[in-house]
Amino acid sequence: MDLANLLLIPLIAAVLILALEKCLRRNHSSYPQARPYSGGGDLSSHAWCRFHVRYYPMALLLIAFEMEMMFMYPWAVVYVAEGIKALMEMGMFLTILALGIVYAWREGVFRWQ
């Protein structure tokens, strides 16, 4: 039952909003209105083109670092039962990964390129 609720609630919510938008929409805009708003600027191209995302090293670092979460959630559940052993082990694991973060910080990864 919990699983059914978990799947049904977002599904119904999404359908509700889609239906609401469809009912309320009054869409008969003319061409000048459909032109993307650009704050008075003149558009020379469409927006979907190659784009230099300035924080890409941070994104790559995150993919590697975020894996640690997969290990941390089960660890958190047994932490109190296992006691000091769990503390030492996760301390070691996080120290290893924190080294990576410190290195990346010193290399200037967290500034926009």
Binding site: L61, A64, L97, L99, Y103, A104, E107, G108, Q113
Partner: peptide, 14 residues
């Protein structure tokens, strides 16, 4: 994962 993090920084950071 540490090796990966260092590797990505070395290879990708401008």
């Amino acid at each position: 994962l540490l090796a990966t993090m260092i590797g990505t920084v070395v290879l990708s950071s401008h």
